[in-house]
Nucleic acid binder design. Structure first.
Lengths: 120, 120
DNA sequence: GTTACCACTTACCTTTGGGTAACTGCTAAC
DNA sequence: GTTAGCAGTTACCCAAAGGTAAGTGGTAAC
C-alpha cells in the first residue's frame, strides 16, 4: 500500500521539477544572469561586457555567450565593416525572464535584510 | 567623460546584483529546491527525503539540510523518545520562496516548450 | 615598427560540488 | 545473535566549473 496521493499527481509534479531544473540549467551558474543584466544596461561589445563584470574572464564570457545564444536569449551580430564589429543583443525572448529576475532579486534583498537583522 | 548614467544609479544596481547572488547562494545547486519541494510534499524524515529524491546521497543531503537550516528555511526537530526521531520541517519563512519557485517552474516549462517546438 | 585594441581561443591548473562506499551507534525485529 | 532500519559521518575519488596566462589574427594609432 502506497501513501495517499497528494493534491498533485506524480506526472505533473515531475514535470514541474524538470522545468525547474531546466531553468537552472539555462540561467544558473555564476555569470549568466549578470551577463544578461549587463546587456540590459546597454553593453553590447565583448570587451565592454567583460569590463562591466569584474572577475569574469574572456574564456568564461565566451562560453556563456554561446550558451545564452543557443537558448535564444541573446543574438550575436557581426557587422562586416572594417574593422569587423561584433555586437551582442538581447532578444525579445529574454524579456520573459523578467519575473524570474525580479523574484530572485526581491527574495535575495529580503533574505539579506533578514540575515542582517539577526532574525535567523 | 563617462557614459551617461542609466535610469538606475550604480549603488542600487549593485545591490540588486548582490541580492540575486545571495538567492543563488541559498537556493542554488542541484538539490536545495528539490529538498524543499520534497518537504512540501510531506516528507519529514531523513531517509524518507533521501528516498524521495533519486540520486541524492546521504552525505549531500546531510550538508544541504544544514545549509537550509542555517538560512532559516527548515527546522530540525529532535524528539527524544526511544527510538530518537528526527524530523525536518519547513518554516513559515520558506513560504516566501513561492514566487521564486513559481517563476522558475513557469519559465522552465515555457522554455522547454519553446525548445521542443523548434522555435530556437 | 612597436604598441595597443578587438574578439576571441588554447592549454593548463585549481577549486568546488558531488558520487561511492564503508562505517558508527543506536533500536527493533526475527 | 544476526539482520535491518534510522540518522547520519568519514575517507576517498571524480568531473565540471571556473581561473590564469599566453597566444592568435586582424586593425589602428603613435
Amino acid at each position: 500500500m502506497k501513501k495517499p496521493e497528494k493534491v498533485h499527481d506524480q506526472t505533473s509534479c515531475m514535470a514541474a521539477l524538470n522545468a525547474m531544473s531546466d531553468s537552472f540549467y539555462v540561467i544558473g551558474g555564476k555569470w549568466k544572469l549578470r551577463i544578461i543584466i549587463s546587456l540590459k544596461n546597454g553593453n553590447k561589445r565583448f570587451n565592454e561586457i567583460q569590463r562591466s563584470i569584474p572577475g569574469l574572464s574572456a574564456k568564461v564570457l565566451s562560453g556563456e555567450l554561446k550558451d545564452l545564444e543557443a537558448n535564444g536569449l541573446i543574438k550575436r551580430m557581426v557587422y562586416t565593416e572594417t574593422p569587423v564589429v561584433v555586437e551582442y543583443l538581447l532578444t525579445s525572448y529574454s524579456d520573459t525572464l523578467e519575473p524570474v529576475l525580479n523574484s530572485l532579486v526581491e527574495w535575495g534583498e529580503n533574505h539579506r535584510e533578514k540575515i542582517r537583522s539577526g532574525e535567523i
